[in-house]
Amino acid sequence: MTSALSSPLAQRLLRIPPAYYVFGALLLTLWLTRPQLFNPNVMGIFIRQVAPLGILVLGQLLVMRVRSIDLSGAGVILLVNYIISSGLFPNGTLAFYLFMSIGIGLSVGLVNGVLVGLRRSSAVIVTLATNIILIGVVQLLASGKPPGDVPGFLRDIYNSKVLNVPSAVIIWVVLTGVLSIFLSRTVYGRYVESVGENPTAAHFSGVPVARTVVTAHLLAGVMAGLAGLVQTSSIAVGSIRFGLDLPLNAVAATILGGVIFGRGDGGVWGPFFGVMSFAMLFIVMTTFGIQEPGKLIAQGSIILIAAIFYGLRS
């Protein structure tokens, strides 16, 4: 087994993020079994569904590149959703909601970043803790009075299309492109690459390691806030129970896309296709009538297999 794995061809194939294989395989399955779903409108709706996940993944891949993790996304999304749908700000404009989402994300990211980057506490535990704090706070705020309606104009924007492509998908792709350029063209991108490869060496070569990690968490918070805004726009009535599984799916898609603690082989587009794979997976599972438990098992297996794939490589 080891000899087969060390052959040049196997090595080259192993270097391609699994997301591309999974995406291809699912696309093929769909094409063979349900060719009627292969039209832009249907596909657009399914892909639009995963846009919040895709935006959340942008933050996740950033923190995972610097060997951290952010599991507080659900809390941020929930808080954003609650504030928008609770009617606390009945005259809120788009700009207001946008700033509010980013502000919430930044604050949570700051707490995470300071504890992980400066205090060097365990990232899993810190972000899980901020997550349950946020969830607890939202549930407390909502107790007794269920959240109300989501403002109509958000829903209109969500439902709009540009050149037959849903706006949400466009926002996701643009954000992905911006992050891609940001990481490949700026000094910060070099910092991220260095810290991910070897934090000690990064420190010794003058990279501001702690600041890089804190910034990654700030950006991850912002992405979570934006994901919350898009997610909220997709529903008519607020909820205090939705989006709880998003952070885990984001971790799964990121690993699938070839980014795993410190290793950024998949870049930004690998995880993008990780999310696309999830979109396909949802279609395939829905068409085959697989229920929620089956989806959980499938997602867990995907994370495990993708992680083993990387474990075998190193």
Binding site: S68, I69, V116, G117, S121, S122, I125, I132, P199
Partner: peptide, 22 residues
């Protein structure tokens, strides 16, 4: 739930480690 989360946060913040990360 929220208070338990805050306790956890306080405890791990108290445990500073050598390395940043997970």
């Amino acid at each position: 739930t929220a208070i338990k989360g805050a306790v956890l946060l306080a405890v791990v913040a108290f445990q500073s480690r050598k390395k940043i990360g997970l």
